[in-house]
Simulated scan of single mutants.
Amino acid sequence: MTAIDRVRILVLGDSGVGKTSFVHLAAHNEPLRSPSWTVGCSVEVKLHEYKEGTKDQKTYFIEFWDIGGSHIHRNSRSVFYYPCHGAILVHDLTNRKSEKNLHKWVREISKRQRERKDSNSYMYVPYTSNLLSEDFDQESSFGSSSIPFLVIGTKLNQVEDRKSHTGHMASHLGCDEIVMDCLQTRYLAAGTSNAVKLSRFYDKAIEMRSKLHKDSFTERLNDPISPILSTKFYSPHQD
């Protein structure tokens, strides 16, 4: 049996915005009626057909790494950030501050990736001061090597004026946004525009994974002492 490759998607956002409810709905196609607070990280998995219906179709496991949003764990949660092939940023439509705080989560990812920039198997996001403000765009702040993002706005059922949402963060990142009620399966039903956005995001994450693996392999080939073989077992050829 052929092993199925896995893609890691980080799900980030403040506590209480509905990350766990979204993940459960996306992974199981059913609402989570009694969500609990996430401490540390929880992982859900679903199968996804990459480029379904084409000659390039291939099955992947999508791993949702639901990261606890508590401020007190900010210094320890970075252990879950590597590797990362894409990130879903979740905010509460009834809480504008939760959307404004998304740039802090992007900055946090950027900082951790910068710290891992010497890893041969990882392409990092450049860390810039632009992330400290809300006025940044994906190209200037992240460069062309950025991981793909998707923004999710939750609790749409509690918003009085549903047309008032402007989606500032998604606009800054140049990515798609989905606004939804995580207790209603229809928001992610097959064939809907939301389902198409999700599928497109998964495909981008898969392509990022492939790119990272390809770049890592190329770097190891060009390294005179390849990380594939530990230097402990390496000795130069002597005539």
Score class of each variant (00 low, 15 high):
164 S>Y: 10
135 D>K: 10
58 K>Q: 06
73 H>T: 10
91 H>R: 05
182 C>M: 10
76 S>W: 05
139 E>S: 12
44 E>A: 13
27 A>H: 01
107 R>W: 04
23 V>H: 06
72 I>E: 15
168 H>M: 06
2 T>V: 06
204 K>W: 08
172 H>S: 15
18 G>P: 01
195 A>F: 08
230 S>F: 06
35 P>F: 05
13 G>D: 01
79 V>R: 15
143 G>E: 06
152 I>W: 03
53 G>S: 12
227 P>M: 13
87 A>R: 01
100 K>F: 10
169 M>W: 06
199 S>E: 11
228 I>S: 13
92 D>R: 10
55 K>M: 12
174 G>Q: 09
100 K>P: 03
148 P>R: 01
25 L>E: 03
80 F>D: 03
156 L>H: 00
196 V>E: 15
104 K>Y: 11
155 K>T: 00
189 A>N: 15
22 F>W: 02
22 F>Y: 07
153 G>W: 01
108 E>C: 01
146 S>M: 03
39 V>K: 07
73 H>Q: 11
113 Q>C: 05
211 K>I: 09
193 S>K: 13
81 Y>N: 04
12 L>V: 04
94 T>R: 06
135 D>G: 04
214 K>E: 09
112 R>D: 12
163 K>N: 13
78 S>L: 05
49 E>P: 01
97 K>L: 10
108 E>K: 03
19 K>P: 06
175 C>I: 03
61 F>Q: 06
79 V>E: 09
160 E>Q: 14
47 L>C: 08
84 C>K: 08
189 A>I: 07
10 L>M: 03
7 V>N: 09
187 Y>K: 07
158 Q>L: 14
187 Y>Q: 05
197 K>Q: 06
166 T>H: 05
225 I>Y: 10
223 D>R: 14
